[in-house]
Nucleic acid binder design. Structure first.
Lengths: 352, 352
DNA sequence: GGGCTTGTCGCATTCGAAGTCAATATGGCT
DNA sequence: AGCCATATTGACTTCGAATGCGACAAGCCC
């Protein structure tokens, strides 16, 4: 009858936690009184509060958030979903989000998405844990978003906006940023360009790449080679090789869909091709991650205002937890162009 | 007579979540039956299970993990505490831990430690959320550890072991790694050394620094200058400047307590002092973070076996959740020495 | 067919805090 | 002092799933 795997009773003598009843008994009051003392703004007399708090401290009482969540239907947890492939950028956001949320008394329950197909399993999980909302910083397909919407849980996308969809999102204006970069490069006299894009199913990459291409076309720059990368260092390096194969030579400027690939590209230029950056090749990225400022790279890039973006994501989600009726909203943030030394940003000096 | 605020069937309204009672009613069975169907290994007939599962699917039922946790006294959540200052290394660990834990059906509840003094507040929080255990990857003082031990919650330290304390910890053998590095550097003929340590209250830094110093002494290397850094890029760069001030010249090799400072140091050497690495200066780090392998740096370092370490941390904590009686255990892992190009590792060629 | 073992199921209780409501205490005012 | 408005308090119920226990059915043996 009893299969032997683990008898729940044998091992579990986890030192019974102190409950509000214990405190009540110790203080000679009712359990409700204890509960009220821990709720700010409740109707409790000074005397009562003092007495209860004293007992609570003596017994080492901490309200049980699980029990509270059950009755209040609020877990004070928000799910944060990030895709596995850590591009240096997501972890940073994660920490920021956690910080911002915890200031508001909400904790992050972390979900990492290994394969995108796992989204359904993951969604079930998220729902089981009764989180109050979710912040999604991962690549998702349209049908996957449908799936989420069907669950009726407030959610906000981070850096993922679908033009044709009414969803909550905070985004950096990728298009604008790319246009700035292109403008400066063209002003400086660059005339041959190549692009290392991100994965084609990445909405961010599409926007960045399209933004750059569009502006390049407007400025009447000729053919632009586009090769695909995966946001990783190696693909930035290999991207430059592929560009050279396709073009038969190196272009004057390479626009990379993120900083890490730009760094890879830059390293390939210097170490594989032995050419000078920015004298012989300009490289620009996007994101403004920490290493972009390291002096070996000193990347010209567009920094995302992470602080303001995470703040926006947090307030958006919490507002919608309060009032699920709020209409979908998208908040766009301009990036900050950083004119680093990885690109020549003024017309070339006269030739030696 | 029975309350029916909103009919669950009519699609999305202030949708009351579907409960096991709803499923039970729909399937014409008892609530307990529904519960049992979701518990693997419970005593349920095939017919029953099929019927319940069908109803569950139709209603979109997901068990409420909060309610379950309340009764089972298991939240299936583990708190992961990381210090705010993200040294590139922690975020990576975080994602790994999350992955490993979720494979075992446990989620990560994230806590970031902004100021170390916040540890008490944080601990209260952790306890409130009834997590099953905690993994701590943050600098903590001895008394803070006492505070944690007092709470009676299983915990495992990540890369933080106190020699004189019986606590659970998984660590990379910092000392061994530093000794390897020193051995190789001395073998290659370096004779003047400097060290850029981490913050003095960082146990990891102390071990690394002491490990290196000890071996240097054993090998009879003369005076070694030690300057303190904060694990950040800038402090690596400034560290080299401070070393030069103290020494009046540059040493032959600089041992940095982590990769990021090594990178900062290396950049300072090249760009501030205009000297060749490794020809004129050898720089070594520790950790084996991603950027260490970028070809501009190609750091000589000791890589921590993150995968195995996180796996160990996860199984350790989960074992202790099952059986809180287990004795404290420390698991040490050897690092992997990576012989990159940032240090000269063979005797110098004859002088030009 | 009687008695027994197994296997399934439902009833009722439990987890710990929060909120409802009615009872009581307090205070203000005339 | 008397009366009403307000502030506090406690008893009881609620949230949703898990589980001990007894009821019952099916299958088995002799």
């Amino acid at each position: 009858m009893t299969d032997k795997p683990t008898d729940p009773e044998t091992s579990s003598h986890p030192r019974r936690r102190v409950t509000s009843y214990d405190v009540a008994r110790h203080a000679g009051v009712s359990q409700s009184a204890v509960s009220r003392c821990f709720k700010p703004g409740a109707s409790v007399s000074k005397k009562m509060r003092a007495r209860v708090m004293k007992s609570a401290k003596e017994l080492g009482y901490q309200p049980n958030a699980i029990a509270r969540s059950l009755i209040t239907r609020r877990s004070n947890m928000v799910a944060v979903v990030i895709s596995q492939q850590t591009t240096l950028y997501y972890p940073e956001i994660l920490v920021e989000l956690s910080q911002r949320l915890s200031e508001r008394g909400v904790r992050v329950l972390l979900f990492t998405l290994e394969h995108e197909s796992d989204i359904d399993v993951l969604l079930d999980q998220v729902l089981q844990y009764q989180v109050d909302g979710m912040i999604i910083a991962a690549r998702l397909s349209g049908t996957q978003i449908d799936a989420i919407e069907g669950r009726g849980l407030p959610f906000v996308f981070y850096n993922r906006s679908f033009r044709d969809r009414q969803i909550n999102a905070v985004c950096c204006d990728q298009t604008e940023g790319e246009r700035w970069l292109v403008n400066r490069l063209v002003e400086a006299g660059h005339s041959s360009f190549a692009i290392i894009s991100g994965p084609e199913d990445s909405a961010v990459s599409v926007e960045r790449t399209q933004g750059a291409l569009e502006r390049l076309r407007e400025l009447d720059v000729g053919e632009v080679v586009v090769v695909e990368g995966d946001y990783g260092y190696a693909s930035g390096a290999s991207g430059l090789h592929r560009i050279r194969e396709r073009l038969g030579r190196l272009p004057e400027a390479v626009i990379c869909a993120n900083d890490v690939m730009a760094i890879g590209c830059l390293d390939a230029a210097r170490h594989d091709f032995g050419i000078e950056v920015p004298a012989q090749l300009s490289v620009v990225g996007f994101d403004g991650v920490g290493p972009a400022r390291w002096s070996s790279y000193d990347l010209t890039t567009v920094r995302q205002p992470v602080r303001r973006m995470t703040e926006a994501a947090v307030s958006m989600i919490l507002e919608r937890v309060e009032d699920p009726g709020l209409r979908p909203e998208k908040r766009f943030f301009s990036g900050i162009m950083i004119e680093g030394g990885s690109a020549r940003l003024s017309p070339p000096k006269e030739r030696a």
